[in-house]
Write a protein that binds this DNA or RNA. Structure first.
Lengths: 148, 148
DNA sequence: GTAATTACTTTCAAAATGCAAGTAATTAAT
DNA sequence: ATTAATTACTTGCATTTTGAAAGTAATTAC
């Protein structure tokens, strides 16, 4: 797992890891859409191809951004979850969404509106905290609660 | 100029535009390294290929993120500058750099340190404002000052 | 035991990127 | 005024990344 970086610039090095069509989209699907299994991802609106999904999940795991595990009584289904390191991507995602909201609407008239966007506009940091804590809470429920 | 978006998600739509190896790197080179001409970009450490550079500069201009102009007494050299819309990408870049600083150092030991990073750590918003205002100030000097 | 589900892998096509060389217009040098 | 250098590209081709479709092995449900 020796990733090649173009140079020593912190901006560029993040883009070396995250600058493609899928890495951050997968993280978003986990964070805001609660996706956890391979199947969940293939069924999403964004419809990532399974070969690419396999590669990207592997990479995200190698980078320590997500973890891969199984539930107690299911030997088949893999459960993918964001690690603390992965959750630190949330502010990046929030800034991307804010930028879309401000700059893409004329080019993309059907871009989502609603409660989420309103909170994002009102208070970016609060929006970020909400995403992170609600994700952590869901995990807590799943790990501590009665096993499915 | 009808860009294709995968869906109506604001996160994903930003990634549709910015999610590649070069778009944000070019913006960074303008914002923090003061690059303005085609030649400037080809001479950078990141060494973008000229064919790709041409395509990306065109796209950034079509999207209204950069402007293309010439200096009064030079019919050859094109000057590329960030627009207000392009400057709004700064918070995204800052979050990317902060994430690199926090999460990439073990994987990438030669990642930059120094004054810039210290300010970034101390106060992300101040760092963002500094980048934006110093870029705008440089433009002001170039546009209002004595012509070269 | 059979069928469905899940997490992949494989194959091949298409698109993005990388590298090297070439070109046209402009500017600088003699 | 002619030649050389510079700038902003374009072109051609190899490589890498991504996309679409089909196939497979292990597990689970009926």
């Amino acid at each position: 797992m020796d990733y090649k970086f173009r140079c020593d610039c912190p901006f560029t090095s993040a883009i070396d890891i995250l600058g493609d069509k899928w890495m951050l989209v997968i993280v978003k699907q986990m964070l805001v859409e609660g996706k956890e299994t391979f199947k969940d991802f293939t069924e999403s609106e964004e419809a990532i191809a399974t070969n690419v999904l396999t590669i990207k999940l592997k990479l995200l795991e190698e980078l320590g951004l997500i973890s891969k595990s199984k539930l107690p009584h299911n030997k088949k289904t893999n459960i993918y979850r964001l690690t603390a390191k992965g959750l630190e991507l949330t502010p990046i995602l929030v800034e991307l969404a804010a930028w879309s909201d401000h700059n893409l609407r004329d080019m993309h008239p059907t871009l989502q509106k609603g409660k989420g966007i309103d909170l994002l506009r009102a208070d970016k940091e609060a929006f970020t905290r909400t995403l992170v804590t609600s994700y952590q809470q869901k995990l807590g429920i799943k790990n501590d609660g009665p096993n499915e």
